[in-house]
Design a protein around this nucleic acid. Sequence first.
DNA 1: CCTATGCTTCCACTCAGTGGAACTTGACCC
DNA 2: GGGTCAAGTTCCACTGAGTGGAAGCATAGG
Lengths: 248, 248
Amino acid sequence: MAGGTSAPGVSVASRVLGLLGAFDPDHRALRLTELAARAELPVPTAHRLVADLVAWGGLSRRPDGCYVVGRRLWDVGMLAAVQADLREVSSPFLHDLYGATLATVHLAVRDDDRALYLDRLSGHASVPVVSNVGSRLPLHATGVGKVLLAYAPEQVRMRVLADLTRVTPHTITQPGRLLRDLSRVRREGYAVTQEEMSLGACSVAVPVTDSRDRVVAALGIVVPRLGRDRARLVAALEVAAQGIRRHL
Amino acid sequence: MAGGTSAPGVSVASRVLGLLGAFDPDHRALRLTELAARAELPVPTAHRLVADLVAWGGLSRRPDGCYVVGRRLWDVGMLAAVQADLREVSSPFLHDLYGATLATVHLAVRDDDRALYLDRLSGHASVPVVSNVGSRLPLHATGVGKVLLAYAPEQVRMRVLADLTRVTPHTITQPGRLLRDLSRVRREGYAVTQEEMSLGACSVAVPVTDSRDRVVAALGIVVPRLGRDRARLVAALEVAAQGIRRHL
DNA sequence: CCTATGCTTCCACTCAGTGGAACTTGACCC
DNA sequence: GGGTCAAGTTCCACTGAGTGGAAGCATAGG
């Protein structure tokens, strides 16, 4: 914009967005100075732009001076496209699954090389898990992740196989073993993990397909251990996945 | 900004936000021209700003040319402050309630003169309801709404009493009757509705308080009819509300 | 082929935005 | 009380980023 811009070529719009991008799950509340630093803006500039955001309701300022994401942005975020209808349609099915098993139930989509959790149900009877709505976890160490990876483009699979970070002692870190696992997923139609993401948690997951048979999401369930429940869980998941497919 | 601005005094920032504000539950997908019109901007200006938003991930463009809210905005919205921890803490309790009753469960806060639904669980066994996560419903016709209204500032109560829109034949539209109902809520600690929002749906709701005994939200449950379950539902809700309070 | 509609690109004009410096506020310590 | 420091806020002269009318492109419909 006008004036002695120190970084010409950066539009006002992108500065505003930079301010929004300064917030993440580990930085939900920021003071003006931190915010300016994270958005790489001079403090007075940040101050002015933030004032506009606050006026609109996109941010709000707490009594202690920290800025936090405001209700208005939450409203707009709720409208986010791709997942809005998917979540809408899936919700009752997830709850049916939860009602039947009382275990943690997940709905996830692939976001580049991570699994993005769109929804998660868990009561107090469920195994504690790390995932959270909106969080992203590795594709190779989670049930839903393996499903998404099994049906992902070759290119994604290559990238992920090149970086199999160990999360627990049971995480699969050998590309060959994971590839065999993935082809088993495609053959049998479901994925399994055994303490590969967090100790004491196993999971089963199935793909959710649309009317053109493309995999659009994965539906998973987390239990303390698999045992002979496996078949029953797979069946329940498949019923739910079919239901979602029909309603899409 | 610079140039022959037709509406001086409007900052770039607020124009960008105007574009975001053009989206609402009834307008989730907009073509460039509509978007520009709703944001009250000339088309070329909208075009440029939208390009910035798309580049950042705040909006995305579908193959058919419609713009929709993007994943990145969803991410940021998920961080929205006040409700983030409330939802987080409440989630397992809501699921416990759902698991125990299989009825629709609601968590709502007051947003000015409406009840804003922060979370909603419902499976296929539940009564169909109009509410949705992110939707706003009148305070006088819903269970959670009555609770929030009962503990709202006098001023809010006045405004709401002045406009008791009829939703169903059972909606309470006489201010005197609603006031008596609200004082009963305060006395007995829970609210009840009987087909006041949608036919065939009754509800029970209780307040959720913080450590200073201020009412921060309402927890409600929707069932086809009340009958002798009422006491049991109130008890279950109160247990959950206490649990949430303890974890806040 | 022609017209209508919606999207995109161009570009001369100019004022909105910039950010260093100065000022205010408030917390903390001696 | 006064002195120090950090965080937030206000000021303002300078200027190039943003503006939007007009013109150029694609499509779709008749």
